[in-house]
Write a protein that binds this DNA or RNA. Structure first.
Lengths: 153, 153
DNA sequence: TTAATATTCTACTATATTGATAGAATAAAT
DNA sequence: ATTTATTCTATCAATATAGTAGAATATTAA
């Protein structure tokens, strides 16, 4: 399961994507609009900043903004920063390989190839989806709902 | 990440698959062979028994055995019992749907369709892989390694 | 029917992770 | 200087994970 940290991050980033190119947004605005505890969001945004996903400006007129174009930021990138590797076992992670501690002999482990496939499919999807895609999703889903509402009047 | 519980379960089940049809195996034998803390394995096997994956026999000559044929037990089934739903968000789980607590409006959430795809691919793989497949993996990997060793003599 | 064997049940305990908060320090703008 | 915001340090509560101890129960066999 995705942690709240990662979920909150994606929510805040979606908002920052919507406002991309229009200057910095306050933490408190993001927190209020997405109903995220402000101090908690603060630490999330800071981690994202330290990894280059976000930029920040201190003082009046300051706040947070995307550190690069939204079509160059993938969900995989963001989730790995907040929740760690996507792989279900350390021994099949591409970005953070580690031997499983219990594992005697990785080469003949029958579980590994299956988990490798899970990690590859997960990475394919999440590394192939950008913040722009996320915003497009929201917009097309919102459009679709409005049409349905009109139809029902 | 898979918990140790689920990993241990799959290791023990692989062994029980190998011995399928040859009567019950002692917890202590499973624990020793797979280097799993015995008391911990005990509780894992009990959960699997309560869900019909395993059968048990008490007393002398007792132990654990598969509750149904190994080609009818999927990894998805086992992992859900020990780690809960496969889905990265409760709102995209097929077997344990719940509304995300923070989520105002699920219908227009841009994250949801992506996570739905992740859960669908994960379920496709894990519900499509059985204990027999796991054992086949081990055996073909072991064969392949032996051939390589011979080649190097 | 008693002893031995093995699972089952109840109840803990330690450690790590998750989700969050408080307050001082620092930087920028006016 | 004052105001505005992020940044840093420290801490905290709740929950989940990993593991342990020991008594209770069921089965077999002598």
């Amino acid at each position: 399961m995705l942690s709240k940290k990662a979920k909150y991050a994606l929510q805040a980033l979606t908002l920052l994507t919507k406002e991309y190119g229009r200057g910095p947004i306050l933490i408190s605005d993001l927190a209020e609009k997405e109903r995220i505890p402000k101090k908690f969001l603060e630490s999330i945004l800071l981690s994202l900043k330290n990894k280059g996903i976000l930029q920040s400006k201190m003082g009046k007129g300051g706040g947070y903004l995307l550190g690069k174009p939204p079509d160059s930021i993938t969900l995989g990138e963001v989730i790995r920063i907040l929740d760690g590797p996507l792989a279900p076992l350390p021994c099949v992670s591409q970005t953070a390989y580690r031997k499983c501690d219990e594992c005697e002999d990785e080469i003949t482990c029958g579980i590994r190839p299956v988990m490798k496939e899970v990690r590859d499919e997960t990475a394919r999807i999440l590394d192939g989806t950008t913040l722009s895609d996320l915003l497009n999703n929201v917009e097309s889903l919102t459009r679709r709902r409005k049409e349905t509402l009109v139809f029902h009047i």
